[in-house]
Design a protein around this nucleic acid. Structure first.
Lengths: 245, 245
DNA sequence: CGGCTACTTGACCGGTATCAATGTTAGTGG
DNA sequence: CCACTAACATTGATACCGGTCAAGTAGCCG
């Protein structure tokens, strides 16, 4: 049996039963490779499937009139992607690959089975989606009410924190295969101004850049500058129902 | 049996079984009145409960350093509120009442029971939370990448659309018991600039104001000006598992 | 009537977008 | 190894949107 990336991620939060692991593994039976820059799906397409990221790095985004676009969320291995398909038959967002990697498409029906048979996993998925909503709330506040300086700092920290979740707390640097324009699309800034902010953060010693690698020597100091809160550090799932046999 | 507001809202999307209706009604056994301006809970409080709105109008918000704050979401009757408690034991956001009304607090354990016993409702709640996430995505793009003019227009339309969802398609005006400062906190603008934008929308004939009542004579034209998409019009839940006995 | 709160309007300023030019790097083919 | 190209990053000059400050107005309620 291929071991499941999704199970690995969920396993960070709860101890999974064998039945649950089997059910999750079934969702990853059809891995599909993708390459840097590939478009997995496009906003407006009929889209009746969700994806589990097995390896690589992607983002979801959508365009708005005037050629501008907003990057909504970056997705790492173990993340569930394209969840808007749970409510819509048409893709509300596009998905693009930042690096090479592999995803597993899953029909919505498979999700239905999971919800019907595994109450605890259903509750867990609901809880995780709430945590992600809180994180999205933070970004809304960041984009709406803080300076460009804090927004860029916030994005870098968020990426580092989420990267650490799956790769160990000790990591203090991260490979950023993003163009400054993409960072701008995520923060609501122009690439030009992103460049100035990166330069400023670097001058202040809050980050160190080496090519596309960014090191954050003191994440607490950067968090203070960004007004950033690490939500994933305080997750509390004590209320979940018991696992089924 | 008191009829359930929550069931009424969910009933818009699916035909509920009797067992499902009973389960939902149990969540609303402890109604509690609130008055305009009341603080239901405050960011940082221990918060192990969620709320169903029975009547009235509230919003969730949180403060950020510098005395500013961001309004995240307005809640109407039938809405589930405080869902961040599904992932955190501490409130990530505050909840404040805009009008008088009634809410029903529910322990997280009650949610666990619901997820364990009613797979279809679990899937439905998941789907609705995804629809709300998409709506939040739209706001992120609106705040990040559009002008003040479009942001205010967008907020007004969103309120109208959601009000229509429960009160009939024909409605073309809405009572807005919000201060301009609150509108600013929702859109990421100052009250002063909100005032300018309302004035401009009014001059352009896109809205008509009469005291705190706002009429939208041509919602399509306003939607075009705002770059607004009505997500709730396209919900597709064909994949849900069957209702249990 | 006085005092509060919210709304309204104007003048000014600063942060960010926009436009434009140049530098840098990776890739390609000779 | 070099010439050439195409992205992308960097930096500067200027314009404009929206914030800030300030003053005045309109309701509302004691």
């Amino acid at each position: 049996m291929i071991d499941s990336c999704f199970a690995a991620k969920l396993g960070v939060f709860v101890r999974l039963s064998d039945a649950e692991k089997r059910a999750l593994a079934r969702l990853e039976e059809n891995p599909r490779p993708f390459g840097r820059g590939d478009r997995i799906r496009t906003q407006g397409d009929a889209a009746e499937e969700l994806y589990i990221v097995r390896s690589g790095w992607l983002y979801s985004h959508f365009g708005i009139e005037g050629g501008k676009r907003q990057i909504l969320r970056f997705a790492f291995p173990g993340d569930l992607l394209g969840t808007s398909s749970a409510a819509f038959g048409t893709a509300t967002d596009s998905i693009t690959a930042v690096t090479d990697g592999e995803i597993c498409p899953m029909e919505r029906g498979a999700l239905a089975e999971l919800f019907a048979e595994h109450g605890r996993l259903a509750a867990l998925l609901f809880a995780i989606s709430q945590a992600e909503r809180v994180s999205l709330n933070d970004r809304l506040a960041s984009v709406g009410r803080t300076t460009a300086h804090a927004r860029v700092a916030s994005l870098l920290l968020d990426l580092l924190v989420r990267y650490r979740l799956m790769n160990g707390k000790a990591v203090d640097s991260i490979e950023l295969p993003l163009t400054q324009e993409e960072i701008g699309d995520a923060t609501g800034l122009t690439s030009v101004h992103v460049n100035r902010m990166l330069r400023q953060l670097s001058d202040e010693g809050l980050i160190e850049r080496d090519g596309s690698r960014v090191r954050i020597p003191d994440s607490d100091r950067l968090a203070a500058a960004a007004g950033y809160t690490d939500r994933f550090a305080h997750i509390d799932l004590g209320w979940l129902p018991p696992a089924d046999a």
